[in-house]
Design a protein around this nucleic acid. Structure first.
Length: 257
DNA sequence: ATGACTCGCAACGCGAGA
């Protein structure tokens, strides 16, 4: 069994004790991290490697930053999403490990919608779609996991009316997400769990966690060859309840050998 | 209630997050 997890840690420096504790307990084989908020030289490589993980890291000062951790070597890394050479934001890292082609994705938030951030989000999603299409030609198990900043359907948030018009929930955003799924990718959690109102993010403000007012925006997309092997997909809410928690919590998939 | 938290920066409040 290969256990693959994705987690937006909202600063790897601030979250290091919680992350290390979780890695020791959950023991995933592959971990996709987002929002490191540090340059590559400040990534806590020593502590991560001490737990038996190799790391492919794409860092950026203060913002963004993604990593791919694995208990096996990481081959043929790709450190930026193709399609825009001028895009300097650290939001994508991909590599081959445990026989899987795996990517850690930090898709742009896109708010405010009236700013240039929303067209950047939609353009980034189109680039991801085009790249995801190319990955299918490998005819292998591909796992595209991360913080998509997309609420796929009304039942994936506590109050659809409150999210109406938001960059995470606009019809154009959800349509762009569906375009990727319609290439032939399976969204792992929803494929196995029909229950509504199951979240991966809860805002720090206004008691969102205590009142279970969240959104489901962290997703794992599987190529047909990976979906054939999908045994389980769970949201581990335990880390979100800790002191100094990230506002996101891990999503964990198990793939049969 | 255009607010509420939490982060990095090198700030001593601000931008960003979602």
């Amino acid at each position: 069994m290969v256990k693959v997890a994705t987690w937006n840690v909202n600063s790897i420096k601030a979250r290091l004790p919680i992350l290390l504790d979780w890695l020791e307990r959950a023991r995933p084989d592959v971990v996709l991290l987002q929002e490191l908020k540090c340059v590559e030289d400040n990534f806590p490589r020593f502590e991560i490697e001490a737990l038996g993980y190799k790391a492919a890291v794409v860092g950026q000062k203060s913002y963004n930053g993604v990593a791919l951790l694995s208990t096996a070597p990481i081959e043929d890394p790709v450190t930026r999403l193709p399609g825009d050479e001028a895009d300097e934001q650290a939001r994508y890292v991909e590599g081959t490990t445990h026989g899987l082609r795996v990517a850690s994705i930090y898709l742009p938030n896109g708010n405010p919608v009236a700013s240039d951030k929303y067209p950047y989000k939609l353009d980034w999603m189109a680039r991801l779609r085009d790249h995801a299409r190319g990955l299918l030609e490998r005819e292998q198990a591909v796992v595209l996991g991360g913080d998509y900043n997309v609420i796929p359907a009304p039942e994936d948030c506590y109050d659809p009316a409150a999210w109406s018009g938001d960059a995470l929930f606009k019809p154009e955003t959800r349509g762009a997400f569906r375009e990727i799924l319609n290439l032939g990718y399976t969204e792992a959690f929803r494929a196995l769990h029909a229950e509504p109102h199951t979240y991966t993010f809860w805002d720090y403000q206004a008691g969102a966690w205590q009142n279970d007012q969240g959104v489901r925006i962290d997703h794992v997309l599987l190529s047909p060859q990976a979906a054939d092997r999908l045994m389980d997909c769970t949201i581990d809410k335990e880390p979100r309840g800790k002191e100094r928690a990230s506002d996101h919590t891990p999503v964990v998939c198990e793939l049969s050998p």
